[in-house]
């Protein structure tokens, strides 16, 4: 039992030391596995911003995760085959430079989030859940039926994309790239939660009438938050594509949306670090159960079910002592 601050700190230290453990155990796969955990945690933090703090149950965040992956994959694909990307009459060169790729990813996933959010936020409740799902499904089926980038089979990248002076193919280097992004995203979201936007978002979750009567437009607050959330999850998708050097429609599927949502809940909503713990347990569980039984998803199902029925507050609250009052300041 400890304070939330201390636990958060421990989580970051532990993650920082992962490559060291990996070297000590002489198993580099651990580092790669934790890269995946960190990336999914980033996606989860993105979703948690609107799900936990804003009460918007998006069941379509795979759209952003997948778009990030495809932007990354497509830019690299065109870089490798020297064919420019054609959009109507415009032509763009591909690139394998991560700094550019990340910027493009952020721009495109923000635009997508603006589009999806603008229409989805006209609805609420179960309709919101379903319309976000529908938008993600649109992209999913589009990616399957559009053969240029592999269609159903997906697209392999021969090498990871690059950053000057760094060898991204080295698992440890790549892990730290993801780690740095995690830190940046945590700081960013922490700022947001304490900002005018963040307090408005938290207020919108509870009472939109009150928010409007103090002169705040809840639609704008929710839309801007949705865009930030989508951009963060898109970035995670970009890192995921580079981690696996492979993209396929799976990263746009509704199961992907479900997975991101589950790890947020598993770790504990309304907590900034919750998705990190959630991603950790989700992946470790997958590895662990997958190691002992072929039907590991069966047991995963049970664990999630028990979690939802009996331990709503998430894993974080098992580990820290302050009785959590969900929302106040962060």
């Amino acid at each position: 039992m400890m304070s939330e601050k201390k636990l958060n700190f421990l989580i970051l230290i532990f993650l920082f030391l992962v490559p060291l453990f990996s070297m000590l155990l002489n198993d580099i796969y651990i580092t790669t596995l934790f890269s995946k955990i960190v990336i999914l945690a980033i996606a989860g933090i993105g979703l948690n911003l609107i799900l936990g703090y804003g009460g918007m149950v998006s069941f379509g965040h795979a759209a952003f995760f997948g778009l990030g992956g495809y932007v990354t994959g497509i830019l690299a694909f065109h870089f490798n085959n020297y064919e420019p990307i054609q959009i109507l009459v415009f032509e763009f060169e591909g690139t394998n430079q991560l700094l550019f790729i990340w910027i493009f990813t952020l721009i495109f996933s923000s635009i997508l989030a603006l589009f999806i959010g603008y229409f989805s936020l006209r609805t609420t409740g179960v309709y919101f859940i379903m319309i976000t799902l529908a938008f993600a499904q649109m992209l999913y089926y589009f990616s399957i039926s559009w053969p240029t980038y592999g269609g159903e089979d997906g697209l392999s990248l021969s090498l990871r994309n690059q950053i000057p002076f760094l060898n991204t193919m080295d698992p440890i280097t790549f892990f730290y790239i993801c780690y740095v992004w995690l830190i940046i995203i945590i700081i960013l979201v922490k700022f947001i939660l304490n900002s005018p936007l963040g307090i408005s978002l938290k207020a919108c979750k509870e009472n939109e009438d009150r928010v409007r009567s103090v002169g705040i437009n809840p639609k704008k607050v929710k839309l801007i938050s949705f865009i930030i959330s989508g951009a963060i999850t898109g970035l995670a998708g970009s890192l995921y594509a580079d981690l696996n050097r492979f993209i396929s429609p799976t990263i746009l599927s509704w199961q992907m949306s479900g997975e991101i949502m589950i790890l947020v809940i598993l770790g504990g909503m309304f907590r900034l670090y919750g998705p990190i713990l959630g991603a950790f347990f989700y992946i470790i569980l997958e590895q662990f159960l997958g190691g002992i039984t072929e039907n590991w998803q069966f047991w995963l199902g049970f664990i999630i079910l028990l979690e939802v029925l009996y331990a709503k507050a998430g894993l974080m609250s098992f580990l820290i002592k302050d009785k959590y009052d969900e929302k106040t300041s962060s």
Binding site: I192, N194, L197, G198, I199, S200, I216, I224, S329
Partner: peptide, 23 residues
């Protein structure tokens, strides 16, 4: 914090994602 919310709503700039409202 209810009052902070309304003061901020009154003054506008509620989409600002950076300035710390609590301090």
């Amino acid at each position: 914090d209810n009052l902070r919310l309304s003061l901020m709503g009154r003054d506008g700039g509620y989409l600002n994602p950076f300035n710390n409202i609590y301090t």
